[in-house]
């Protein structure tokens, strides 16, 4: 079965990972801009990263037959630095026409600070001004519930927000409901220790249904599993779910979200009939 990896930081991964993902049926990857594990010192440093995401990484993915998409921003881990955030936000628009850019992300909160929230709002405004999709990172561990609530409230305060054009990622048992009940899309991140396990991800899908939800590995430079989505597919089978249900979560739902960007190319022979923005 073909699948889409909607959240992976491939700049941190090896060609072996690309090969393994391709062998397991991955046809497209979307890569949000994220923290390098250390703070970048200048807006020029971000521009270089955006060039890597829009020029070099798509070529690397193409060697394995994988289509590469990306999202641009200054990420929440660096959002406390307001001066740098403003500089980076000013430089993003010139990259938005690049053919693999789907929108603004992953923006959001890290430790739920006032500055992070301001940086988040700057990015939402940028996305709305340029009619871009939005991909959101929710905070980790004890900060997740409060941060998700602050994010949902901030989004709803923008009159132009269209919830079906917004993905609020890294949901867990205590945050999925507030995201979905406000009309947003949500993602479950399959991590070895934090976020959700394979079995809990299937539990959450069983609890909230198969609409507006997808799963991802969020693999990066830390302890993470680039083949987590196919492992989720196995867990769904173990639970007795049909191929149609599995395909909806790992293939159709990412397409329904990303197709709302004119840059997304629907995989050949697939889903031409799925309306743009369908659940």
């Amino acid at each position: 079965m073909r699948y889409i990896e909607p959240h992976a930081h491939m700049v941190s991964r090896t060609t072996d990972d690309y090969r393994q993902m391709a062998l397991m049926g991955c046809v497209a990857i979307s890569e949000p801009a994220f923290w390098a594990g250390w703070d970048r010192s200048t807006a020029d440093g971000f521009e270089d990263y955006f060039r890597q995401l829009t020029e070099f990484e798509p070529r690397r993915a193409a060697l394995y037959g994988i289509k590469h998409y990306t999202w641009l921003c200054l990420n929440p881990k660096e959002g406390e630095n307001r001066k740098l955030a403003r500089e980076v936000v000013e430089r993003i628009p010139k990259f938005l026409d690049r053919p693999n850019v789907l929108g603004i992300g992953e923006i959001g909160l890290n430790r739920n600070t006032l500055n992070e929230l301001e940086t988040f709002r700057d990015h939402v405004r940028l996305a709305l001004d340029h009619r871009q999709l939005i991909l959101i990172h929710t905070p980790h561990l004890e900060d997740k519930h409060k941060g998700t609530r602050l994010i949902v409230e901030a989004l709803l305060s923008f009159p132009g927000i269209e919830p079906s054009r917004v993905m609020i990622d890294h949901a867990e048992e205590h945050t999925a409901d507030m995201i979905l009940s406000n009309g947003f899309r949500t993602g479950l991140t399959l991590y070895p220790e934090t976020k959700v396990s394979l079995a809990r991800a299937v539990d959450i899908v069983e609890t909230y249904g198969f609409d507006r939800i997808y799963v991802n590995s969020a693999c990066d430079w830390g302890h993470s599993t680039p083949t987590a989505v196919p492992q989720f597919m196995m867990e769904m089978r173990r639970r007795g779910h049909s191929d149609e249900s599995i395909r909806k979560v790992v293939f159709e739902n990412p397409i329904a979200f990303m197709r709302q960007s004119p840059h997304f190319v629907t995989p050949a022979g697939e889903l031409e009939s799925v309306p743009v923005g369908a659940a």
Partner: peptide, 8 residues
């Protein structure tokens, strides 16, 4: 919201 970042 927290007034300022305490740790990453």
């Amino acid at each position: 919201p927290r007034a300022a970042l305490d740790r990453k």
